[in-house]
Amino acid sequence: MDASQILTSVSILGGVGLAFGTLIALAHLRLRVWEDPRIEALTDVLPGANCGACGFAGCRAFAEGVLEGAAVPAGCTVLSRDEVEDVAEFLGVDVGESNRRVARLLCAGGSDVALRKADYYGIESCAAALAVTGGGKGCAWGCLGLADCAVSCDFDAIHMTPFGLPWVEPDACTGCNDCVVACPLDLFVLLPVGDPLLVQCRNLMEGEAATEVCSVACNACGRCVQDGAPGLIEMRSGLAVIDYGRIGEANPEAIGRCPTGAIAWVLGAQDFPGAPVTSEVT
């Protein structure tokens, strides 16, 4: 093979490449869509978890929302307070207010207080246990403690206590809803971090039937209904239900006479035995 053949092919391919390259460069100049460079910059600063807790379809959509004025930097629940302020300063906008929500577990029945009827051997997953005949817990509504929620949490905000309850670290929780979807018993809710009144039970049985299976179950005695602000708490099919539309009227007296502790006044993290002690969060 002589050198001219190589030269020919190189020059043909090079020429073609050059021609198309020029075409692309021209097209880029002519057909360019201008994009705010701050979107890219902001997306890089955002956590990139695409958790959706802000209400947008991912971090980039949130960045666009902030620049359009549809959202405020504080809407991102994953960023720390300092980072949010940095973002606001960079964009020259107000930090804004966000109603930060955290995941709360509607069960306090750890293995220390809840009856266990049978041992479960099988796939270590709440959903898998429920797909057969449950996890052997006395209360059919209560937390099975096989940690589907902790596995689903992208922020390592859920830790299992020694008594098999998932404990949510409020500072790490972003309110992304993953645990709410993961729990097959629908035991998680997202509540504003400042709303302290919470019924930590889903057991629909009443009286001794409820407390026989779990000593911290709501036995539907109705004392909290009398002690809370009028109309704030209602007894509905064996369970105290709080009207969160009127949570502003709540006061700690509502939990004062609860015989089992099913209704709780939660400042910061939920108080489960064996959980790490945390200070009050804002």
Binding site: G122, I123, A127, A128, A131, V132
Partner: peptide
């Protein structure tokens, strides 16, 4: 492998998805 439990789980997940 607990295969049939996995399939029971898959079926339960399908039911749950339909409910959602």
């Amino acid at each position: 492998l607990p295969l049939s439990q996995m399939f029971a789980l898959g079926k339960a997940a399908a039911r749950r998805r339909r409910e959602l």
